[in-house]
Simulated assay, not measured.
Amino acid sequence: MRKAFFVSTLVLLVAFAVQFIFAAVGGFTRPIGDDAYALHSINGMAVIPVLTVLTALLAALAKAPGRVIGLAVLPIGLVVLQPLIAMLAEALTDASGVSTPLGLIIGGLHALNGIIAVHVVVGVHRAARQLSLAVPAGEAQLVPQEREPA
């Protein structure tokens, strides 16, 4: 279970990295249409939430320390917050659909929240790596005996 926890954190980190790439793809797509951020939306609203819940579940099944399980659960809340921030930023446009300064600031919080989520997942990944390298209780390590000099 510990190896599965470690692998899930690695896959989640890759999904977050891809999420930033998809955001850039949307930002540089011309002409900008409703589907410019389609990949970003699908990854952020389907793939990342499923991987985040899976990682939190595997942390519990791997019998990780409570702090690590708590850190593994934290991105779930951050991921749920992402579309809410994006919707609020979209709602703060003027009557002609042009972004307002407040809407742009809120949009910046969307990116900041994503960066915070990545940093939390990096912490969980480091903890999972340490946990996967640790020898479970009850298993003795075999220490090779050195030969005595002749």
Rank of each mutant, 00 (worst) to 15 (best):
G33A: 14
D35I: 08
D35W: 10
A36C: 13
A36F: 10
Y37T: 08
A38F: 13
L39F: 13
H40E: 13
H40I: 14
S41D: 05
S41T: 13
I42F: 07
N43L: 14
G44D: 13
M45I: 13
A46I: 15
A46F: 14
A46K: 14
I48M: 15
P49G: 09
L51K: 11
T52H: 10
T52K: 08
L54W: 14
L54E: 10
L57C: 13
L58R: 09
L58C: 11
L58Q: 11
L58Y: 06
A60Q: 15
L61F: 12
A62P: 09
K63I: 05
K63L: 12
A64F: 04
P65M: 09
G66Q: 11
R67Y: 08
R67I: 11
R67C: 02
I69C: 10
I69V: 15
I69S: 09
G70W: 07
L71H: 07
L71I: 10
A72S: 15
L74N: 09
G77A: 07
G77D: 08
G77E: 10
L78N: 00
V80Q: 06
L84Q: 09
A86H: 00
A86N: 00
L88T: 15
L88R: 13
L88Y: 08
A89Y: 01
A89E: 03
A89Q: 01
A89I: 03
A89C: 03
A89R: 03
E90K: 03
E90Y: 00
L92G: 01
L92F: 02
L92K: 03
D94Q: 02
A95F: 03
S96I: 00
G97W: 01
V98I: 07
V98E: 09
V98M: 09
S99L: 05
S99V: 04
S99Y: 02
T100P: 06
P101A: 01
P101K: 02
P101Y: 01
L102I: 02
L102P: 00
G103F: 04
G103T: 06
G103A: 05
I105P: 01
I105H: 02
I105M: 04
I105G: 01
I105Q: 06
G108D: 02
L109G: 11
